[in-house]
Design a protein around this nucleic acid. Structure first.
Lengths: 254, 254
DNA sequence: CGCAAGGTTGACGCTGCTCAAATTTGGTGG
DNA sequence: CCACCAAATTTGAGCAGCGTCAACCTTGCG
């Protein structure tokens, strides 16, 4: 159930049996949330910390024009608002994409963990920093790449993030997003997303059926989109990359 | 000198005399850095924490295409990499725009502060969260608004951020950015930035001369760009806004 | 005074948006 | 199992925002 979280944290930091136990206690009860439902809205004071155990959610804002801008996709193992609780009020909304299992963690439980479990604390920090790095990369994506590379980049990122929590196999992963969701996060129109996905399919890069996405040749899709995984800061993945992508070694050596 | 930082922190959290003293000791020596100079590059392991005392800098990445994407502007009082030091290596570069005064703060000094000064620690957290909120808003900006609103929004944000650290008066602030800098952060071409700034000037919204920007009517520019300051989480500013923008009260009350 | 960097302008084309309609998919009740 | 409906996807046509290329002008500095 909350394997996703533990799996993710362990890809950042080695955890003890005690740490595991503390994490299990952290989730007292699990809540089922339907698809397309808000977990928390802009303007509300943040109270509990939300953790996605199952399903997909997103961070978003509604512009004065009515346009929705999605700023992050949240997958199993992701905290929605690990840190926001320090602030006075939410400056954005969080809503589900698919049906989700969500844990509402009281702030006190987080405090308790950070007081007594330094490894978990460090892993939590790591999570927060990676979330921010992903956000930066999205800005790079939307600001600097054109539609086809942009969407391809997103698909690569989702693959790696879902692999890290065990939700992808054979380069295939669940894909509950509507094309309108992709449009609203990539700053594109729905119609153009449709044409672009069509293009990626026609190029033989991906297949999308029964709400599951398959990437036929990951390296090819990465090359197509200019994807570099360094911003995800995955400890496991990094080693294999060092072996397979020689120029990264140079960059790291300098 | 480091008034900017103290000023900023105090807009988030009340600090004691002891806190002030601790912050002064935090900056052992100040370094002068020329314009257009990198403070730290992608791939390097982060060591010291950099604090901008004077001048403007930016976070950026270079895409495979050679395109530069700026992800944040750093103004006096901003930390460049308060948290990044937990991660293994930088996933982006930080470079100056204008000449800067920079403090290199050893990681240990930060640890010491956070161990002994809870109010400062809380204010540091607040800084980090606001930085992330700004990043989210930039994504909204680039993804959801068109060129003229996008640039106008940036100008509003810079005004408020610089006012908060005492670098703006009479709605005028230093503007050392080249049009190419604006282009690279807003995901636009240099030529289109030029035309858009021209448009804002023609509309009588701004004046730009001698590297200083003046906003003639702040409320008008905010309305033009769809700017809402809530994401900056400025404690001082919030109250005045509650008075002047009735619908915010409703949103907060719900 | 002269040069280089940055700002400005024009012409033209492409990427991606809008509007609108057709088709497919998935869920529901008979 | 089929008919039906709403939601989502797909397709087409026309157009606008913004990019590209290239030249010219202005500003600041040595």
């Amino acid at each position: 159930m909350q394997d996703a979280l533990i799996r993710k944290l362990e890809s950042y930091e080695a955890l003890s049996k005690q740490d595991h136990e503390a994490l299990r206690v952290l989730v007292p009860k699990i809540r089922q949330v339907g698809p397309r439902t808000d977990l928390i809205s802009e303007g509300e004071p943040p109270e509990n910390v939300h953790l996605i155990l199952e399903g997909f959610a997103c961070r978003y804002k509604i512009l004065p024009s009515g346009q929705r801008q999605i700023m992050a996709f949240l997958v199993p193992g992701d905290f929605c608002d690990l840190n926001v609780f320090i602030l006075d009020q939410m400056d954005h909304c969080i809503g589900t994409i698919s049906a989700c299992q969500v844990a509402d963690i009281p702030r006190r439980a987080i405090d308790e963990i950070t007081a007594n479990h330094p490894h978990i604390t460090r892993a939590f920090w790591w999570c927060a920093l990676v979330d921010e790095a992903v956000l930066r990369e999205w800005l790079v994506n939307v600001g600097g790449r054109q539609a086809n590379q942009r969407i391809a980049h997103l698909l690569c990122e989702l693959l790696l993030r879902l692999q890290a929590v065990g939700y992808a196999s054979d380069n295939t992963y669940p894909f509950p997003f509507k094309q309108a969701d992709i449009a609203d996060c990539m700053g594109l129109s729905e119609v153009h997303v449709n044409r672009t996905i069509r293009e990626l399919r026609a190029l033989g890069l991906i297949t999308l059926k029964q709400r599951h996405l398959t990437i036929h040749n990951v390296e090819e899709l990465k090359a197509f989109s200019g994807f570099t995984a360094n911003y995800l800061h995955l400890k496991n993945a990094r080693w294999s990359e060092r072996r397979s992508v020689p120029w990264l070694v140079r960059a790291q050596g300098s």
